[in-house]
Simulated assay, not measured.
Amino acid sequence: MADPRLRAALAAKQFVVAPGIFDMISARIADRMGFTALYATGYGTVASHLGIPDAGVATFTDMVGRMGRFAQGCSTPLIADADTGYGGLLNVRHTVRGYEAAGVTAVQLEDQEVPKKCGHTPGRRVIPAEEMALKIEVAVEARRSDDFLIIARTDARTSLGLDEAIRRGQLYRKAGADIVFIESPESEDEMRRIGDEIDAPLLANNVDGGGRTPILSRETLASLGYSIAIYPALGFLTMAAALERSYAHLLRQGDSNNLPEGVLYEFGKMNELMGFPEVWDFDRRWARPDAQRADG
């Protein structure tokens, strides 16, 4: 079931900051921190699950299981990347129903051609706006609950310009999208225009480490008319940097002593994060008397 708290937060004009999660360790850490929503990044999920680029190779089957595991393993509402809906109109209906049944709260659909490419990368091409509007209409009809939110993303800015991206955002809102996502605006002024000209909750994609869009404070984004800020790459880029430092240290030194401060997560904290205390409590409660004597 979709979580009604995200819709309620948007209705209350609460600005939503959503960190990117990409595996169950990142999901569990983010889930404990008090965010209003989490964002299941397609790039990071495909990279961690399949070890390949987010270039339209991953299928609905690859992704819905992962997204469902994130949703079931977290108590925070989950926003999930669903690429193009994995095909045509019938695929979109199947995707929406599958993601909703898996426990996702909001699904992001984009207007790229198949196979899609990751946002903020070159070579993205979009389908006709009217074709995407039909996909949004199908998605809205397919959902079982109004608490399951439809996010319409357009990648038209990079290839067709800002005017066309805004036109598409307006069209997708009229088609029933709950949230509009104009991918890759290239300045604060462009973001201001988007906020002025699209009457809908807006999503800002903050890509750390080299995205096209400036990363602005939540106060600035709210003043420009945005409602949600996602940080899809923050988690996996942080993880990759820490792993590279740790593994290089091991290769260079031959052991893991004297690692740089702050690189390691404490083993005891990891046990707690993964739920081992509950397992140990279960074992104690159900241990056989002979096993208890052996342990003693």
Results as ranks from 00 to 15, higher is better:
A11H: 12
Q14N: 07
Q14P: 05
Q14H: 11
F15R: 01
P19A: 13
G20P: 07
S26Q: 05
R28H: 05
R28D: 02
A30N: 10
R32T: 13
A37D: 09
Y39W: 11
A40K: 09
T41L: 14
G42W: 13
G44M: 06
A47T: 11
S48P: 12
I52P: 01
D54F: 14
A58W: 09
A58L: 00
A58E: 02
T61I: 14
T61G: 05
M63H: 03
V64L: 06
P77L: 12
D83H: 09
G87V: 08
G88D: 15
L90I: 15
V92G: 08
R93N: 01
T95G: 03
T95M: 00
G98D: 08
Y99L: 13
A101M: 14
V107Q: 06
Q108L: 15
E110S: 00
D111I: 02
D111H: 03
V114E: 14
C118R: 04
T121Q: 07
P122V: 11
I127N: 08
I127C: 11
E130C: 04
M132N: 09
A133K: 06
A139Q: 03
V140E: 06
V140A: 13
E141I: 06
R143H: 14
D147P: 05
F148E: 04
I150M: 09
R153W: 04
A156H: 02
R168T: 10
L171I: 09
R173Q: 11
K174W: 00
D178P: 14
I179T: 06
V180P: 09
E183I: 10
E183A: 10
P185A: 00
E186N: 10
E190R: 12
M191E: 06
R193E: 15
R193F: 11
E197P: 03
L203D: 12
A204Q: 05
G210C: 02
G211F: 11
T213D: 00
I215F: 05
E219I: 00
E219W: 01
A222L: 00
G225M: 03
G225K: 01
I228S: 06
I230M: 14
A233I: 03
A233G: 05
G235A: 15
F236A: 03
F236S: 08
M239C: 02
A240G: 05
A242K: 11
A242D: 11
L243D: 13
Y247A: 12
Q253W: 03
D255P: 06
L259C: 09
E261V: 11
G262N: 03
V263F: 01
K269A: 15
M270Y: 15
D281S: 14
D281G: 11
D283H: 13
R284Y: 13
R288E: 14
R288W: 14
R288M: 08
P289K: 06
D290T: 10
D290E: 15
R293Q: 05
D295R: 15
